[in-house]
Write a protein that binds this DNA or RNA. Structure first.
Lengths: 349, 349
DNA sequence: CATGGCACTCTCGCGGCGGGAGTGCCAGCT
DNA sequence: AGCTGGCACTCCCGCCGCGAGAGTGCCATG
């Protein structure tokens, strides 16, 4: 990657900024006018030619203004990462919203998705916090009707799973409760592997339930995330390049399709740590449909305890100056939440 | 509403049909060609003029073809309602999908939404079945960390609610389980009002939990539906009239916003019975944003036991011949499900 | 009462045309 | 050297006008 002079770099940043809020190719003359730069248009043109040569800019047609390439955006984002603090007022607004929300993971996730979407004007997504390796905490068996019973399982961290099963013959609630009680004392706090290693149970009912529990735990362990909360999908449509086009529709479709979204999050999850922000520009994420999009992702939570992923997805031309600090801030807020909720006996404010 | 001659009626139906799959104003000449009618274009024109006069058709400009008005669609839909059976092959495909799905309300709802969206090429929505008046069935209290405890409540019918609460001082799991046990035997099968009428509990913890239970039950009773499952939202974008326009975006936004969607379903819920199909055309549903849309809705389930709402939302120009029987069929399938699941000890096939 | 003919209207696609914005290059100035 | 102003050139884009096509309403006729 070629070196940039100081001037070229500032120029590049200005060009990207201008393109982001104008959505039209930026030309030399307009640029000096709007940013009263110290150089003449001719000089700018020289530098622009150089930047184009180096692959940071691109012209849609000869004799049109310049548009940033993915590389160009990357430099811009690199610069954003260092500065970009969310205004205090906005921070307060966000904190206030969280403060007066109901407790409960589900509500918090919805709220976080909503905040991200509204603050950054793009589509947002977030997964609930969960431990790296799921641990059994509690199971409950409830007879619903006939031979059908509802199993409700709680994992350490508070995730609740439910599963329905039908037995070969009716069992009364008292026996179900007993069984659940025995399993609870036997399995509490154990991981999948630990449970799998236990000797098989004598009692047929207990055995059946344990198989089911193991199955659910395995499924949970395999999928990188549980439910994915999203919001602001329609924000994608405000991007002029997306409004009527097929590419915009396909990107939206991807967001609606949870399975692919899970893949996407699983990929980025692997090589990222809590606290670090990850910006995937264009095809960097590996998805054909998102060639005109970017993602800003972060992991949050407490490593070793429970972590989740959150982020936004928007047009490559999104306002990184807005999204990056927002994602970072919301990640911090949620990390605090996980900390309070799960790490110790501290009382939330 | 003016009377239609037999000929006018068949003509109107053909015109609507033609417009639905062509999306362009339909003219007299084209019409006779494509449907080899027994009348000449001139005759058609006469009738068209009459139908326009009566308010069933409309011309975008003088000297353009005709487009159905809301009234026109209504007549068309009225005719659809009677015939319109889903082909056996499609029925089998759908049944097959349900047959090999995992049990569990959540999965079934997702599947139903997916089936509706794919079969009818529009956006679908569905609410889980629930009793008219919620009944408590079971509660479980699980200590998570410090003073925080997780309350998991199961309602008759299998709906699972969770709520977090923090106590003023730590309580050990054994006591929580005891408390839950007492409440279970006390409250099992009771409705909100019955519970509210019970004498206040002595024990402080029990009292707190009961307040929480009552609160949750009330919230459930008030909201006409729990979570709303949707699918195929992006199908809306394939409608040419919606693709790039603001109106399409607003309609999508409405679908994304669950609160308004709940309102919408609540309204239609009130005056509709299981088995009956309801088609809301244009502004009939009372939503400004949906002035170019129609909804096909149905209630399913077993009245008095548990019911839910499902339906599709698409452009007014949607294929009713496809959506109406699909909605009806899926509603029937789900009614059967509710029946099997909750009504008695019959064994599913 | 249906039909064929006819004059009329209006949309839509297409080609041509200019203005505007932008570029690259070059000669000259500091 | 490096920046700057000037200049010729290119290309997009919006506008206009035109003609074809499709459709209509009306009327006279079978």
């Amino acid at each position: 990657m070629p070196l940039l002079t100081e001037r070229q770099k500032t120029l590049l940043l200005v060009i990207v900024r201008e393109y982001i809020d104008g959505a039209i190719p930026v030309g030399s003359k307009r640029l000096v006018e709007r940013y009263h730069l110290d150089f003449s248009p001719a000089t700018i043109r020289h530098e622009m030619a150089a930047l184009t040569e180096m692959g940071y800019l691109r012209q849609p047609h000869v004799s049109a203004g310049r548009v940033p390439t993915e590389e160009g955006y990357r430099v811009f984002v690199g610069a954003m990462m260092e500065q970009a603090e969310l205004p205090q007022a906005v921070q307060n607004t966000i904190l206030h919203q969280f403060y007066q929300a109901l407790p409960g993971t589900d509500q918090w996730m919805h709220l976080a998705a909503s905040v991200l979407a509204h603050q950054s004007h793009v589509a947002s997504m977030i997964t609930a916090p969960r431990p790296d390796t799921p641990r059994f905490q509690h199971v409950e068996l409830i007879s619903t009707q006939g031979r059908q019973i509802l199993m409700v399982m709680v994992l350490a961290g508070g995730e609740v799973l439910q599963q329905l099963l039908s037995l070969s013959e009716p069992v009364e609630q008292a026996r179900l409760s007993q069984t659940a009680g025995r399993l609870n004392s036997l399995l509490a706090g154990r991981t999948v592997n630990e449970i799998a290693a236990l000797p098989s149970r004598q009692d047929a009912l207990e055995k059946d339930i344990m198989v089911l529990i193991l199955g659910e735990l395995r499924r949970t362990a395999e999928s990188a995330s549980g439910e994915i909360y999203t919001d602001g999908l329609t924000n994608m449509l405000s991007e002029p390049n997306f409004a009527g086009t097929e590419s915009g529709r396909r990107a939206l479709r991807l967001l609606e399709e949870r399975t692919t979204l899970q893949d996407l999050i699983a990929r980025t999850t692997s090589n990222s740590t809590v606290g670090g922000l990850q910006v995937l520009i264009g095809t960097e994420g590996g998805w054909e449909e998102l060639s005109d999009c970017s993602m800003v992702l972060a992991r949050y939570g407490v490593p070793g305890l429970a972590t989740g992923t959150l982020g936004v997805l928007g047009p490559m031309r999104m306002s990184y100056a807005r999204t990056i600090p927002t994602v970072r801030f919301v990640a911090d807020v949620l990390s605090d939440l996980v900390n309070q909720r799960m790490a110790g006996p501290q009382e939330p404010a």
